[in-house]
Design a protein around this nucleic acid. Structure first.
Lengths: 203, 203
DNA sequence: TTTATCTTTGACCATCTGGTTAAACTATAT
DNA sequence: ATATAGTTTAACCAGATGGTCAAAGATAAA
């Protein structure tokens, strides 16, 4: 199936995704999206009434992809240590294929903090913690992970995989200067990050 | 000295800093900046010829503030462990007072990666590594920090302090939902991050 | 006081931008 | 074949936006 065979709506959506990720909501131009989709600007408004509608559609999809990676890891029948390794490997691999998503999302949550607030208010955090505790009571105690410091721990893990992509232009420049390469740095990070975290909590 | 006593150029610069940090380059409006500075839009162009000029001036200042924190820590006469604690305390305290800087910078380096690339090409990384090694040869060996994995280690530290602010709307929502509070989370992070890193490398 | 230089302003402009409209085209069902 | 509904287009519009300009004020030197 070639690009031109795709249905118009899908072509628009794909083009919009590209442009919004590249330029952000404010920097994106409807004309640019129409051009990339190979259609007229009016047709764009025919399928998605406004720029906001189109952006929301794209954002929902991307945010969904980004956060759904956090869920399934809890269901696997693994030790906590294995889950940490599993998550970091999976999440960094996902970001390898979608390296611009972190800056897109990080940017959007600042432009419109209320959207993410409402989304998070829907999560039942107590239930999540209870699930985690029932599965790993011993390990959590041994690693000194409590309900109180769980946010510290979780954001540390998330930062380990997300930050390198959010700061990619800086890190890539440094790697280049040192004669190394950003892709190798990322590949290596899957293991480095996991080892680092395991070491920190085992102590 | 009240706001109105300030010289025009300074008032413009301060207003522009506010607006650019809040909205980013694309989202910022010259009219908005002029209004906040309490002046005419034409006067704005009199002092800073174009939006680009004005943005560059603001960016230089902010990037300077952000990165100069990384330097002096090397000069202090401290153990490596003390330096790590010192840096995280200082840097997180700085970000507490300027919580929107991370997303501003992270956003700008993606909008214009070339600027940061040129800036980093000017740094002498070999010299930096030699300095570090001459001061902490034993510790680096003991902690298994090599020239090759230094970027992994440095980005881990940077991420520890920067990521929570870059993802603040998410983290603040989660803390709120759990009945905690983002400011306490940050205050606690100064110690948590340092302990976490020290534990990870001591193993 | 006059002159020259630096500030500040209101009015204005060209261009860009998101969005609309009416008409033309296409496919499908009757 | 014709009516109907869905799709696509060219032309257009109102408002926003970055930027300009000529003239008026302010300041200080001569």
């Amino acid at each position: 199936m070639t690009e031109t065979d795709k249905q118009t709506e899908e072509r628009i959506f794909d083009a919009a995704t590209e442009v919004f990720i590249e330029k952000g909501m404010d920097g994106a131009r409807m004309q640019d999206i129409a051009d990339r989709a190979g259609i007229n600007k009016a047709l764009l408004h025919y399928y998605y009434r406004t720029k906001d509608h189109l952006f929301n559609a794209v954002y929902e999809m991307i945010a969904g992809q980004m956060f759904k990676k956090f869920g399934p890891v809890l269901d696997e029948n693994l030790t906590l240590e294995q889950k940490i390794r599993f998550f970091l490997r999976e999440h960094i691999t996902f970001l390898q294929k979608n390296p611009k998503l972190p800056s897109f999302i990080l940017n959007e949550i600042h432009r419109n903090p209320d959207r993410i607030r409402k989304l998070i208010q829907r999560i039942d955090i107590n239930k999540l913690w209870n699930t985690l505790e029932s599965q790993h009571r011993e390990e959590l105690k041994r690693y000194n992970i409590t309900k109180e410091n769980l946010p510290q721990f979780m954001t540390t893990i998330a930062g380990m995989s997300v930050f390198p992509f959010a700061a990619k232009p800086i890190i890539a420049s440094i790697m280049e200067k040192m004669g190394y390469n950003f892709d190798d740095y990322i590949e290596h990070r899957k293991e480095y990050a996991a080892d680092f975290i395991i070491n920190a909590i085992i102590k």
